[in-house]
């Protein structure tokens, strides 16, 4: 049996009206050399539909490789072009190992709490 990656999507609005809409991509399974294209395709799809703020929930990932990080990196660059960003939520132990080993935890904002993560997308005036 090959790798599997389930991606579920939800949209969130923070408590106050100033907070922007955030799309949460919840990943479950393995983000590796054979599944990273699924994430990339889904991210491209929602970005083309005017999503610019993406929170990637990594709590359900039991494996991630560099191809997975590359997909997150590509998604991040696409949201930046629209004035948005990608942030990470609750990286699993497997995710943390790879993020820290490559130093990506310094380039992405990482949150442990969903509400705080959603609120962090509030525009700074």
């Amino acid at each position: 049996m090959g790798s599997t990656l389930n991606i579920s999507i939800s949209t969130h609005q923070g408590d106050d009206k100033l907070t922007e809409t955030v799309t949460v991509l919840s990943l479950k399974g393995e983000l590796d050399s054979s599944t990273y294209k699924d994430l990339q395709a889904k991210a491209e799809e929602i970005i083309s539909e005017d999503t610019k703020n993406i929170l990637i929930d990594m709590s359900g990932l039991n494996f991630i490789g560099s191809a997975g990080l590359r997909a997150i990196h590509t998604t991040s660059n696409s949201t930046k072009e629209k004035g948005g960003s990608v942030k990470l939520l609750k990286p699993s132990e497997a995710s943390q190992r790879v993020l820290k080993t490559l130093g990506f935890d310094q380039f992405f904002e990482v949150f442990q709490d969903l509400d705080k993560a959603i609120d962090s997308f509030k525009p700074v005036h």
Partner: peptide, 22 residues
């Protein structure tokens, strides 16, 4: 790695870098 996340960067070579560090 600091160059990988710049918008213009090509992220190739990440896998080998990951191996080196592990």
């Amino acid at each position: 790695i600091k160059d990988v996340n710049s918008p213009d960067a090509k992220p190739g070579g990440l896998g080998i870098e990951l191996i080196r560090r592990l």
